[in-house]
Design a protein around this nucleic acid. Sequence first.
DNA 1: ATGCCCATTTGCAATGGA
Length: 265
Amino acid sequence: MKIATFNINGIKARIGALTDWLSEATPDVAVLQEIKSVDDAFPRERFEEMGYQVETHGQKSFNGVAILSRLPLEDIRRGLPGDEGDEQARWIEATVMAERPVRLCGLYLPNGNPAPGPKFDYKLAWMARLEARVKELLELEEPAVILGDYNIIPQMEDAARPEAWRNDALFRPESRAAFRRIVNLGLTDAFRAMHPHMPPQPGPEQFSFWDYQAGAWDRNDGIRIDHLLLTPQAADLLRDCQIDSAVRGREKPSDHVPVWVDLAA
DNA sequence: ATGCCCATTTGCAATGGA
């Protein structure tokens, strides 16, 4: 079963690029971030025609997450627990009914800039809520994938120019420590499990985001911030993990590209 | 040191992104 995460940066602007990629990559499940749409405005028919069940958790203008699945979805939940007053649409969960059911948690973690400041505080508070939810998921001892735009550069090798991100909310010590705390509960970073950092690399590192500005894509000045974290039961099913980098070089691209895992589920 | 580009808004400049 192929499960992908893709920050599309606006469904309205990305409908063509997204359907093209779905047709080629044929993921069983695509977890989307930044749909930037309310639920009623999401073009669900376009994806239903392609055989996908569509579940959205949108809001006006910003944020918004969704799950597209060719297999049935059950027990859909919207919103990250832990703060009833949080209006931002950044979390959606569902169980994909494969031969071996897998719990999916799609997330769009807050950017957190500028740091320090209230937006950075919100990011860290959101990550504390994520940690609490991950602890619950791990106690179930079932296959689960927590995937999406984490807005975290985990290590130096995950940025082409780490020094440029030194004081950024994506790379600050507090952000990376919060990410490590979550991973260290017992999750596996699927990409690093399949592609360990082995300096000196024969080629450039792989990234999942390149800024629109300053020719970042042409210079491969990217960062790896879209992640798929696996519970032990999901990690035991891991067959492959790849980044579809070429999508970034097409017409009217998102600034992120899809990242996917193949699970023996 | 700052902006570069892109998407959205009941828009025509401002905000958010990362």
